[in-house]
């Protein structure tokens, strides 16, 4: 995600040794993934508003530590909110309870409002921590870290091929799109537009299939036998352990705050 935030060309070596993301960027990618998952699980388990606010504060704290551009990161987080906004708005009306006010005869309940706030806090805390801890990784590093965490090989390969070819596909799309433009194509609401976009998507699929066949051929030529080997090694340093312990303590205190 941060990759999209800052499109400067970074190499793998730079991304691992000289990370631009402050304290967070120096941590072992594996520990960042594990901690992000742990934090997500803990946050989802929380049920009280104070605990959830603390969880969101923890995420914001991580954001400050990471030196990500704050406004743009929060904006991206808000983009995720647009997916759940309808559910949040409708929740007070769909949950029975004490009436707060009525709109066109439909009562909005306090219980529904609190539920909506809970969900909004949970979602934002989780997505923000994910963006800070996992999103700051170079996608390639993410793939390697998942591999080292024993994520199913097929999924890791899928991720790696996506990383490698998404740009090629996008360029192909842009080429086709400009080829359409220079012949005066302007999208509007008619059959010609739908059909043309259909052709565009179809052509991209056909080309993608042909390319995948050529890639398989190239891999076979170099002795591919169904297994990809990944080269990168990670090593845990003391700082990683310290971070893991501290962050786990934060998670435990969040849970305790919730139960008290």
């Amino acid at each position: 995600m941060a990759h999209a935030l800052e499109p400067q060309a970074k190499t793998l070596a730079e991304a691992t040794s000289d990370a631009p993301y402050g304290v967070i960027g120096d941590l072992d990618p594996r520990i960042r993934i594990v901690m992000a998952c742990l934090f997500a699980i803990v946050t989802v388990a929380l049920a009280t508003i104070p605990a959830l606010i603390s969880a969101l504060s923890t995420s914001i704290g991580l954001l400050l530590l990471s030196r990500l551009p704050i406004r743009r990161t929060l904006k991206r987080m808000a983009m995720m909110d647009s997916f759940i906004i309808f559910m949040l708005v409708l929740l007070p009306f769909s949950m029975p309870g004490e009436a707060m006010f009525t709109v066109f005869g439909f009562p909005a309940s306090w219980q529904g409002l609190w539920k909506a706030i809970e969900i909004a806090l949970t979602a934002n805390a989780v997505i923000l921590s994910l963006m800070v801890l996992v999103g700051t990784m170079e996608p390639v590093t993410l793939g390697h870290a998942l591999h080292k965490l024993r994520c199913p090989e097929v999924l890791v390969h899928l991720l790696m091929f996506t990383i490698r070819y998404i740009e090629v596909l996008r360029e192909e799309y842009l080429r086709l799109r400009s080829a359409m433009k220079i012949r005066g194509f302007r999208p509007s609401t008619n059959w010609h537009t739908y059909r043309s976009f259909g052709y565009l998507v179809g052509m991209m699929l056909v080309r993608a299939i042909e390319r995948s066949e050529r890639i398989l051929g190239a891999m076979k030529c170099r002795g591919f036998s169904g297994r990809l080997m990944l080269l990168q090694d990670f090593c845990m340093t003391r700082r990683d352990y310290v971070f893991a312990v501290l962050f786990s303590l934060v998670c435990i205190s969040l849970l305790m705050l919730d139960f008290l």
Partner: peptide, 19 residues
């Protein structure tokens, strides 16, 4: 682009020897 399918150059070159 058909031939270079690994994310990094080093990995791509190592692909053959590893196989």
């Amino acid at each position: 682009d058909d031939q270079l399918f690994c994310p990094t150059v080093a990995e791509d070159i190592a692909f053959g020897p590893l196989n």
